[in-house]
């Protein structure tokens, strides 16, 4: 693909389904949102829980004597489980709620990719984003997820609306334009 010159490099129209948007939002939350560093947080809580368990063990698990240890142990184990299991699920559910509450996400957008930026637009909404503004670009089997640093942070492009050639062109373009931020997590 020749990427010289000022013209459009890739352009297409695409809609978005709720399942794909929810998956994109889940990945965004885990990468840049409340789920950032969840493994570290879960580990810290687990370590604290083990500390409390050790202290309980010193007192032969006499919960009456050390109620605080028992309570902190339970809270820490819950928080550990929350970060590992519940947080991704909640992120997906929040994505679904955002999609259902939005009057724009279900509409078809026209995407135009240029050398320095891309534009997505429909009758009522236009967004222009520079590639330098993107903090992450993640490609999965179903979607391209573009995470920005300013407003309108999450852009999800659903691959099922693209033909194979356009999807490959877009994949090549994004991998070149967002080298450090690009991640390909397709199942090989």
């Amino acid at each position: 693909m020749d990427m010289s010159g000022p013209g459009k490099l890739v352009c297409f129209s695409a809609g978005l389904d709720i399942k794909e948007y929810a998956e994109g939002y889940r990945l965004f939350e885990l990468r840049r949102g409340t789920g950032t560093g969840r493994e570290i947080k879960a580990s810290l809580f687990f370590f604290l829980a083990m500390g409390m368990l050790f202290m309980l063990m010193l007192e032969s698990f006499n919960i009456v004597k050390l109620p605080v240890c028992a309570i902190i142990f339970l809270i820490c184990m819950y928080m550990c489980g929350y970060y590992i299991f519940f947080l991704p699920k909640r992120a997906r559910q929040r994505g679904e709620r955002i999609y259902e509450s939005s009057g724009f996400l279900s509409l078809e957008y026209r995407y135009e990719f240029y050398r320095e930026y891309f534009v997505m637009k429909n009758k009522n909404h236009i967004i222009k984003r520079y590639f330098t503004e993107l903090s992450d670009c993640i490609e999965t089997d179903e979607i391209f997820l573009l995470i920005g640093t300013n407003e309108n942070r999450v852009t999800v492009i659903q691959k099922s609306f693209l033909d194979k050639e356009t999807a490959e062109k877009l994949s090549f373009l994004l991998s070149k334009k967002t080298i450090k931020q690009y991640r390909d997590i397709r199942k090989k």
Partner: peptide, 14 residues
């Protein structure tokens, strides 16, 4: 603004 534009009617406002 320079980077985006949006038109909202009463129905599209949450």
């Amino acid at each position: 603004d320079e980077l985006s534009s949006i038109r909202l009617t009463g129905e599209s406002i949450y």
